[in-house]
Amino acid sequence: MTRRTAWLPAIAFYAIGGLLALLFVAPVGWLVLASFKSGTEFAQTPPTYLPQTWSLENYRRLVEAGLFRNVLNSVVAAAGTVVAATVLCVLAGYGFARFRFRFRGVLFLVVLSTLMIPFQSIVPSLYVILDTLHLTNSLAGLILVYTVFALPFGIFTMRAAFAAVPAAIEEAAIMDGAGTLTTLRRVLLPVVSPGVATVALYAFFTAWNEFLAALIFTTRQEQYTLPVVLANLQTGAGGLLNWGVLETGAVFAAVPCVLIFLILQRYYVAGLTGGAVKG
């Protein structure tokens, strides 16, 4: 091991690694800093590298343009997806891992098969189906779609999490006379909580960042999620684009993800590598 790590001198390793890391983080950091320029400074040629005068103008304009509503839509869509997907995945993961019932294998295969057929290839019919259900007009429709996106990975993760719990724990609870649901809630859930965190995180990022479905399935500006309203800002301006507002919108789209990741990255990384590699 020692020889292995020593081949690259520490100084070079940290210099190159540090530079690379900076390159990865800089764009977002720079965007956040730049959002505090004034509107004119943001759109000026040549660009300033750091704000000359610090201003909240872009944020004020963003609120004035009513974009806060779209931020809220994104929050609602993401929150709804997190709740729905987490609950469904916990239940299904529990069912698939701890019960032997008829068609169990087939049904699990059906769930996993959705990984093979991406949603982008069923957009036309999904639109027709949602339209028939009168769900193209609403955030509820989006939450439904995003929840389905998050299910295969989530169920997979939760099944693995439940399967890893020693049977003795569950049996002890059943011996004590606890019902199935009570066992799940009181005894198992605390044990599998890292898996739950992973599923919730995954659902959040899916819903918060999704673009194509939101572009197609939402009808009006007041229902757009953040990424879509920014696309409108960009294309609808015809030479009069307000760059400051557009990019401040991007700050709102990026920063929550970054913060949540920084706080909970342990679960994110564990979920991705653990779940994926076992698969």
Binding site: A21, V25, V28, N209, A253, C257, L262, Q265, V269
Partner: peptide, 19 residues
């Protein structure tokens, strides 16, 4: 370093495109 390299993964493609 790992955190830095993984950080952009959680940002959406649309957001990254505006950036």
């Amino acid at each position: 370093l790992r955190t830095a390299f993984v950080l952009p993964v959680v940002i959406g493609f649309a957001t990254a495109s505006y950036l």
